[in-house]
Design a protein around this nucleic acid. Structure first.
Lengths: 254, 254
DNA sequence: CGATTCATTGACCGGGATCAAGAACCGTGG
DNA sequence: CCACGGTTCTTGATCCCGGTCAATGAATCG
């Protein structure tokens, strides 16, 4: 069974057997279980390791002077947290868990070795950071030009798709262990207004929520509400090889 | 005289003489003058070349279904436009000029050769994309948690700093050839409200505007209004070697 | 089973949007 | 040199989306 990191990156490329074995090895050791709301890396620090989310849910966030928190990105299973440590002297934001999460550490030293000797892996990591950039740009559009309703629909659709990408779900149900306050901090809205928009999405039978389990009842409808276009995720292999396993996982959604 | 690309990247590293010569050569050929509001690369396309802004002003933007435009980033002289072409199959956004601009093309083939053989240059490009990511994250905070007034102050302060980084100005005056509608598209506000906020910044003697020439009358005051913190720009060398030429250019601002 | 967090509802408020009209600033050509 | 048509900037009046405040349930957890 391939690691989630591989499953994620296979949306970009097909790895050689050696690369695959190496990545599987790296993501099966130095695991640590974090609780909810624990920091993995803090702003201003420099970590010797890079981290990968294997289960649960984490986020990039920053605390502002006025006490508010802005979540800039969700990190779902399979996502590298901090590949910037290879270049930058210190983090410019925090990375923390939202729910209990299993996190894997890979030593920066070992990674640097790999990046020099395994071009296939290097390219995949580069793709991953470019996808992150695309996601960030989409969030800017969200906050700049979409109203609260579409913004939340977008967020839900994206998370559904990203979870399907790595195969941690295979239908429209997914574990999304966030509070409405978390969604508020991610969308730039207030918890009160998030609540009202979620109610609307439920009234319209687009989604259903039972505890931490969310269901997208009407993917096409939600997609429309979100004005969603998946091109920013650059699922290149899904386009080139629509019959690949990776592409199958997101079928009907992109 | 070093090219603006080098001046930008020297905030991260000091190049070897060979790397410097190579970069200077690459940025002194295949130049093309664009007019205002011309596209350099379009969404959905794949360009064989990567582009670098040498003068003028460009931006990353996307047009939405409802006809609005969202500018996700300004590109100032020295900025690479589309290093993603080495990895991604197609652009997920447009890059276009806002004012007449001199743009340099570097063939992707040549760049790939360099990236394989010149680690110093490769790392500098990687830093550059990570800085871009930091800028994007800061914009998300902007739109999510700052009010219109601080948001515009932030934008102006950042542009001042980025222009000083590459030495195209050396005081508080800079050429910023944008309309108020452009600023509206970048901040997610309406032109009317941008106008009112600019008036307020002028009333408070923080800035002055004559045509396309902007002046920051009170950098410290503007910085405070913007709640600006430069850590997201990762001007690493300015910290390590505060007396370096690169660091001198942004002295007093970071 | 009490305590604390989280979801929900209602009343009210305000920052920024919207609409509309006029003024200042172009580049252009006669 | 001036008349012009088109941007761009400016101002005022009005509206509404989403924020704020506050109180009540519901759920989760030592």
């Amino acid at each position: 069974m391939d690691s989630l990191l591989i499953k994620r990156m296979e949306h970009y490329t097909r790895f050689s057997d050696e690369d695959r074995a190496l990545l599987n090895e790296l993501t099966s050791q130095r695991l640590r279980q974090y609780g909810a709301r624990e920091d993995i890396v803090r702003e201003g620090e420099h970590s010797p390791d890079m981290h990968i989310v294997l289960s649960g849910l984490a986020c990039r966030y920053k605390l502002l002077e006025n006490g508010t928190r802005q979540i800039m990105a969700f990190l779902v299973p399979g996502d590298p947290c901090d590949s910037e440590i290879f270049i930058l002297k210190e983090m410019d934001h925090n990375i923390g868990t939202l729910a209990p999460s299993l996190i894997c550490s890979i030593s920066g030293k070992k990674m640097r070795e790999i990046l020099l000797n395994r071009p296939g892996i290097t390219l995949a990591f580069w793709w991953s950071t470019l996808q992150d950039e695309g996601i960030l740009r989409e969030r800017i559009i969200d906050e700049g030009r979409r109203d609260a309703y579409s913004r939340i629909a977008f967020l839900i659709y994206e998370v559904l798709l990203r979870m399907r990408m790595v195969g941690v779900i295979d239908d429209q149900n997914f574990d999304f262990p966030v509070s409405q306050a978390d969604i508020a901090d991610a969308t730039g809205l207030t918890p009160v207004h998030v609540n009202r928009m979620l109610q609307r999405l439920r009234d319209e039978k687009l989604i259903a929520i039972q505890g931490k389990t969310w269901t997208v009842l009407d993917p096409a409808g939600l997609r429309k509400a979100a004005q969603f276009n998946a091109n920013y995720l650059h699922l290149d292999r899904a386009k080139d090889e629509p019959e690949s396993e990776a592409a199958e996982r997101v079928k009907g959604l992109i």
